[in-house]
Computed example of a mutant assay.
Amino acid sequence: MILSRRVLLAGLALSGTKAPAFAQSAPEPQMIPVELIDNALNLPSIVRIGHPHGDVIMVEYFDYNCPWCKRSAQSLPDLLKAEPELSYMLVNFAVLSPQSVAATRAALAYLQLYGPERYLPLHLALFALRGTVDGERALAEAEKLGGDRTRMTEIANSDKTTGWMKDAFATGSDLGLVATPSFLIGTEAYVGGMSLEQKREAIARARG
């Protein structure tokens, strides 16, 4: 097991019970104060992919057991290809279950050991799994990508990882993100699932 009971309960204190949003239309954009966006961009756990200095910054708050997050991950390579000037950032936001908390701890351990350059393959692999993603399954996928299970387990249960999760939860709460996935695109927040086309429309909106 990746988590002791004590550590698991500490993780659950971070999590809520919000269900993912399912909608035919895109969620309505909400203006966000710049300082709150800056707080999100300065999270130590944020994973930066896409253009390093893009003309639009898009941040996704996600949970590894969220069905709409899975759809978002499946379309992410196509989005990055279609939007080469986009800076895309991922924030682990484990709010759906104890299993999500454990999976996030494993993912953040992999991030700390191997850096953001190697994170995207793990991200896509976890969302390619069927069924519930927990700590053990996340560790197994990370091992397939060359991760050291012993080191990852140690780091997953560390105070540093707990702190990263608390920080992400705090910024998400400040931003009013009550469902996964949620997106920051430019200076606006979109709470709920978005199709590839809806994301591209929101990116174009941010470009003005």
Results as ranks from 00 to 15, higher is better:
64 Y>V: 11
145 L>V: 08
121 P>F: 05
61 Y>L: 13
74 Q>Y: 04
6 R>E: 11
62 F>E: 00
81 K>L: 14
145 L>N: 01
118 R>W: 00
21 A>I: 13
63 D>Y: 14
56 V>M: 11
134 D>P: 01
3 L>C: 13
14 L>F: 04
144 K>T: 07
80 L>S: 00
61 Y>R: 07
80 L>P: 01
4 S>T: 15
5 R>S: 04
18 K>D: 04
128 A>S: 13
3 L>A: 14
16 G>N: 13
70 K>D: 02
65 N>P: 00
71 R>Y: 09
40 A>H: 04
83 E>M: 08
32 I>N: 03
11 G>K: 09
85 E>I: 10
95 V>F: 07
108 L>E: 14
100 S>L: 12
58 M>T: 08
31 M>A: 15
80 L>R: 07
80 L>Y: 07
127 F>P: 00
115 G>H: 06
113 L>E: 02
111 L>H: 07
91 V>D: 00
113 L>T: 03
55 D>T: 14
126 L>S: 04
109 A>W: 11
26 A>H: 09
114 Y>M: 09
11 G>M: 12
5 R>A: 12
12 L>Y: 01
33 P>M: 05
70 K>I: 02
6 R>S: 12
99 Q>H: 13
46 I>D: 01
32 I>V: 15
90 L>E: 01
137 R>Q: 11
15 S>L: 11
104 T>F: 09
125 A>F: 05
54 G>A: 12
66 C>S: 12
130 R>C: 04
61 Y>E: 03
50 G>S: 08
121 P>T: 05
47 V>S: 02
46 I>R: 05
43 L>M: 08
113 L>W: 02
123 H>W: 10
41 L>Q: 10
96 L>K: 13
115 G>S: 02
16 G>K: 08
75 S>Y: 07
111 L>W: 04
120 L>H: 05
120 L>F: 10
63 D>I: 14
130 R>Q: 12
56 V>Y: 07
119 Y>Q: 10
30 Q>G: 03
77 P>D: 01
138 A>T: 12
120 L>M: 12
96 L>Y: 00
51 H>M: 03
141 E>L: 15
71 R>S: 02
107 A>Q: 02
26 A>P: 00
23 A>N: 07
81 K>T: 06
99 Q>L: 05
144 K>I: 10
107 A>D: 00
79 L>A: 06
42 N>R: 15
121 P>M: 11
66 C>L: 09
60 E>I: 13
65 N>G: 08
90 L>C: 07
30 Q>N: 03
134 D>I: 12
58 M>L: 14
73 A>F: 03
81 K>Q: 14
133 V>K: 11
77 P>A: 04
142 A>F: 11
43 L>V: 05
76 L>S: 03
106 A>Y: 10
35 E>K: 14
28 E>S: 15
17 T>C: 14
23 A>Q: 10
36 L>E: 02
135 G>R: 03
128 A>N: 11
128 A>P: 00
136 E>L: 13
117 E>R: 15
111 L>T: 01
116 P>I: 04
87 S>Q: 14
85 E>F: 12
